[in-house]
Each structure stands twice: as C-alpha cells, then as structure tokens.
C-alpha cells in the first residue's frame, strides 16, 4: 500500500460508514423511548450497596495484561518503537476487526486501524493509566476516528478526535473500576447471556436493531430494555467502591 493513498481511501470509504451510521441511527430512533424518562433526575448519592466478591474468571484472552498500558507509557516517555510495534501487533488487527464489523470495507478498515495506531503514537502523552485501561483508550480513539471518517463523508467540519472527549474529573470509584480491564471483563462475564449479547450488538453490529431483534426472535423494546438492564448491572458491579 502506498502511504500517500491513505487519506484518499478513508474519504472514499466513508460513505459506507455513513450508510451504516444512518441505519443504526434510524433503528435507534425507531425505538420507542420510555415516555416518562426523558430527562432523568439523578440522585447525588452513590449506590452504597455491598458488591459481591468478584469472581476472577480467566476467560478473557488478554484483558488485564498490565504490559499494554506500560507500552503506551514507554512511547510517551521515550518514543519506544519496540513498544509501539508490540502494541501495533496486538491492537491493529483488532481495530481492523472492529471497523469491519461496523461495515467498513477491507481497505477502509485497514486504513482506520493504521490511523488509530498513528494516533496512539502521537497522543501517547495524553494517556493516563490511572484514568483508563489501554484497550479503553484505544477503543475511544478508534471510535472517534470512525465517527470522524463518517463526518468527512458528509462534508462536515473536521474536528480533532479529542476535541469533544475532554471529560470532567470522575469519581474515584469509577476511575479505579474502569481502568481495571480484569474487573470490567469479569463484570461482563457475570452478565446473563442475553444481556451480554445485546451489549455486544450495541458496539459491533452494523445491523438495524429491528434486524437484531428479529434474529433473536424478540420485540424491539425487549432488546432496548435488555441493554438498559445490562448497563444498570455493569454500573452496579463497577460503579461502587472497590
């Protein structure tokens, strides 16, 4: 692949993502949202319920590998190219997989995987291992680049992929939970299978929710309510003090 062709392939392929995004959006909009819940008043107090002891399941292949965060830090601190190569070999094929799942063709998926890893290199100094796991940080970069590619396809203003992700300070309990991949993976592992399935679909399916629902033999509203249940449960597992 010639290096110069990269940005062009992103441009030409963006319409694919745009179409996918439209389908997803249309499906989401078609879903009836609960009438009373449009703006939720959230009680300030944190849930105080005791968390049951977390089962440490080893089901996840690499989640919790502490080395991945250290590799990003090594890039930030000393421009460690070997660390970058290791990260690339692990994440680029998975980012490509993510893009393919969301409807990108092979060339666009490859290009967005490359862009993601280039952004990892250039923005490594902005990675805070106390705030997010390596995989979370790389997921947000990949997600933002995908959104950005879709925007360019719509001739929208190009925004810095980090421009909108500046977040306020987070509660310590959430920080300590969210940056711990093992704990998050374990929490996902504790979800009932039907809830785990809809969570996966929310991230990776390029199908309208109506099709997902049809495949699962479920009403559309059931798919949505499972998603909410799953998130409430993950919040319960992760949002409390460790």
């Amino acid at each position: 692949m010639s290096t110069g062709a990269g940005s062009h392939s992103v441009l030409t392929g963006a319409s694919v993502i745009q179409a996918v995004e439209y389908n997803v959006t249309r499906a989401m909009n078609a879903v009836t949202v609960s009438r009373q819940g449009h703006s939720v008043e959230r009680a300030p107090e944190v849930r105080a319920a005791k968390r049951s002891p977390m089962a440490i399941s080893g089901a996840q292949p690499t989640a919790g590998l502490p080395g991945l965060s250290a590799l990003i830090v090594a890039i930030a601190e000393r421009g460690d190219r070997a660390a970058f190569a290791t990260l690339f070999n692990h994440f680029a094929p998975r980012v490509k997989s993510y893009m393919l799942r969301l409807g990108a063709d092979g060339q666009l998926a490859e290009e967005l995987a490359q862009e993601t890893m280039l952004t990892v290199w250039r923005r490594a100094d902005g990675f805070d291992p106390a705030r997010a796991a390596a995989s979370t940080w790389i997921f947000t970069i990949a997600r933002n680049l995908r959104i950005d590619a879709a925007r360019r396809g719509q001739r929208m203003k190009h925004d810095d992929p980090f421009d909108e992700t500046i977040a306020p300070d987070l509660p310590d309990a959430i920080l300590s939970a969210a940056q711990d991949e093992t704990r998050v993976a374990s929490a996902i592992g504790q979800l009932p299978l039907d809830q785990a399935r809809v969570i996966r679909e929310a991230f990776f399916s390029d199908k309208p929710h109506s099709e997902i629902a049809a495949e699962l033999g479920l009403p559309l509203g059931t798919v949505k309510s499972r998603l909410r249940l799953a998130m409430a449960r993950l919040r319960g597992l992760l949002g409390e003090a460790a």
Binding site: A63, V95, A132, S135, L170, V184, I199, F203
Partner: peptide, 14 residues
C-alpha cells in the same frame, strides 16, 4: 467511562 471500558474489553476480545 464505564461503557467505554466495556468497549475496550470487547474490542480487545475481538
């Protein structure tokens, strides 16, 4: 942050 952490675990497991 929690949903993104889930996304990280899922992308890692792809």
């Amino acid at each position: 942050a929690i949903v993104e952490a889930v996304g990280g675990v899922l992308i890692d497991a792809l």
